Simulated scan of single mutants.
Amino acid sequence: MIQLREISDRVLLTILTIILAAIAIISLCLGPTKITILEILFALFGRGTTVQNIIILELRLPRVLLGIMFGGMLGFSGAALQGLLRNPLADPSLIGVTAAASLGAVIAIGFGMAAISVIIIPLAAIISATLATMLLFIIATRNDNLLVLILTGISISSLSTALTSLAFNLAPDPMTLRDMIFWLLGSLENRTTADLMISTPFVLLGWIIMATVGRSLDAMSLGEETVKSLGINVKLLSWRIILGVSISVGAMVAVCGAVGFVGLVVPHILRPFVGYQPGRLLIASALGGAILITLADLLTRLPNEGNPIQLGVVTSLIGSPIFIWIIQRYQVNNDTK
């Protein structure tokens, strides 16, 4: 079995940034209209042709930036939750925010609210995710046990999934049902600057809330006695992470749909390179998540007659084998101990 070696943060982040930049440039170039890298540079500064400026600034650039933000938040959130809960299976879906946001969007689609305004579906998803977070807060604050937090999140996720299924059953016509299902599969296609403007404030707020949790997560990995000796408020730390994840990931799910496996597998892939330190893993996982989403979005553009491949389908096809490999690797490690 290949042993991965810990490397410095600077080297790791540099490598990940270069990979992300390369994929982003390819994504800007790729499309029905061929545009060279030089023409992209001109268009980014508004000096290309009218058609090139519209294609790059209004269509491709928002799609790339949304992919980077979405993947970044999923990767960061997955690493933060795994460090907080000390559970290698933790990801944003565990606390119910993904399912709740999806429920809000599905209800908006089912009632035809999208015809009122383009922001109705994202707004409904954000409101739903916020309500789920408030419910999680009310229930879990009565008990400091992290297990209660996990079980509450699972309950909210199960309830949201059940209500989503009910919305499918009550869909007024097959076309509406089709729209619901396709939205749930996730996509960056046809996303515009408006979608970017809707989600960015929430993502930034989530980043701000969780910006300094790294050292506290490192301390938590050393045990409860270490945490107490350093004067870390575990309850406050928990809610900073839960609130940050709910706000940021909820907003991105609201715009791009539900996408799985990113927050789960990316931290596992990168953890050996950071010496299994939760604090060092956060930014690396954000870059890794951004890479995975932008790469998956490139794969959705493969030639396909009829309906395009949805983003959530691609991430599942990529993530499932990786997750199986991770499970097998951990099993081998446990057997050799």
Rank of each mutant, 00 (worst) to 15 (best):
R215I: 15
L147K: 11
T193D: 00
A129P: 08
L136C: 05
N233R: 13
L237F: 13
V249E: 03
W239T: 08
V253Q: 03
M210R: 02
F261Y: 11
G214E: 13
T192H: 11
I209A: 01
L146E: 08
D179F: 04
G206N: 05
T133C: 13
S199K: 00
I241M: 07
L136I: 12
D173G: 06
N190F: 14
L149E: 04
S248L: 08
T161F: 11
I156K: 02
R178C: 04
D179A: 10
I247Y: 05
A132R: 01
L236P: 12
L217I: 10
L163D: 02
M134V: 15
I181C: 01
A132W: 03
M134G: 11
E225F: 14
W183F: 15
C256I: 10
P122V: 04
A211D: 06
L163A: 06
V245Q: 02
W207G: 00
L151R: 01
L236I: 14
A194V: 14
D144H: 14
G260V: 12
A254D: 03
I232R: 04
L159H: 03
L135W: 02
K235C: 11
N169D: 07
T130W: 01
G231K: 11
S216R: 14
I181P: 10
D218E: 07
A194N: 14
M175P: 04
V234N: 13
I139D: 00
E189P: 02
S246L: 10
S238G: 15
L163I: 13
A132H: 03
L205A: 10
L217F: 12
L149N: 05
S157C: 09
M220L: 15
L151Y: 07
M134A: 12
G260A: 13
E189T: 12
I181G: 01
T176E: 04
A171E: 02
L204P: 10
G257K: 05
C256R: 07
T226M: 13
L230E: 04
G260R: 07
L149I: 15
A162G: 07
G223T: 06
V253T: 06
E189W: 14
I208R: 00
L204N: 01
T226A: 09
I150P: 07
E189L: 13
I247V: 13
P174L: 07
L222H: 11
N233T: 13
D195H: 15
T133W: 14
T133F: 15
G244Q: 08
L217E: 03
L185D: 00
L166C: 03
L188T: 00
T164G: 09
L185H: 00
V245H: 05
I127A: 08
F168T: 11
I181F: 13
N145Y: 04
L184P: 08
S128V: 01
L217P: 09
I181H: 09
M134R: 01
G263C: 06
T164C: 09
P172N: 10
L151A: 02
A129I: 05
A162P: 09
